[in-house]
């Protein structure tokens, strides 16, 4: 009898896991088949769930005169810290209307985190290194994730009807987004292949190769 109870509990547990968190996954590749790294996927369902905010600040490093990550997605209300792993100064700034700020980054000193309290795309630059560009994607969606180096992503979501938004700064579409609707339930677990077209010229945020002979950079 005790064993039966255990089994019942186990079945219930598996079932409850299935109904409360389904895995939605996908890959983002270019039409040429190249994986798209650090693209942002957000999911908004019909049930308005509140996002779980990270208390620890998220991190966007300065390394080898680049923003690492190049793209960072966060929830509205979360904070980001900008350390400096280079042995030179950086002077990062944003003139995005949603969050404009500047931080002087000395080597070896970690500045106070910046709180991003409005949704939108915050484009970051460095006043010392003009090629540097970074993006903080501040979302009010309850769920988001970013693609890995293979372009793959996954989200654990309750069953619902979702509006999925794919954002990537170099996407060749209005506002750099691609939107699609998806019905997620136990009969309809989804894996999505997204093919995207990128702009022909895009800022990589990397030091210009042709100036590699120029140590002044």
């Amino acid at each position: 009898m005790q064993n039966q109870n255990k089994l019942f509990f186990l079945v219930l547990l598996v079932f409850s896991v299935n109904v409360s968190a389904l895995t939605l996954s996908g890959t983002v590749t270019t039409t040429e088949g190249e994986p798209v790294f650090e693209a942002v996927i957000t999911a908004v369902g019909t049930v308005k769930n509140k996002p779980v905010l990270s208390k620890a600040p998220r991190k966007m490093d300065q390394r080898h005169r680049e923003f690492v990550s190049h793209i960072l997605a966060i929830h509205v209300g979360e904070s980001v810290v900008f350390p400096n792993s280079d042995n030179i100064q950086h002077h990062i700034y944003s003139f995005s209307p949603t969050n404009s700020f500047e931080i002087q980054l000395y080597k070896d000193i970690v500045p106070k985190p910046i709180v991003f309290d409005k949704s939108g795309v915050v484009v970051l630059g460095c006043n010392i290194h003009d090629w540097m560009v970074g993006y903080v994607y501040v979302t009010d969606a309850p769920y988001f994730t970013q693609t890995d180096a293979k372009g793959a992503w996954s989200l654990n979501l309750p069953a619902d009807d979702y509006t999925l938004t794919l954002w990537y700064p170099h996407l060749d579409s209005t506002n750099n987004v691609q939107v699609q609707q998806i019905k997620l339930n136990t009969e309809n677990p989804a894996s999505i292949e997204q093919k995207v077209t990128l702009k022909t010229t895009a800022r990589t945020g990397k030091p210009p190769a042709e100036d590699s002979q120029n140590p002044l950079y």
């Binding site: 002077h91 700034y93 944003s94 003139f95 404009s100 700020f101 500047e102 006043n127």
Partner: peptide, 8 residues
């Protein structure tokens, strides 16, 4: 002289 700007 290249001051930082938080405007366009």
């Amino acid at each position: 002289f290249k001051p930082v700007s938080t405007s366009p």
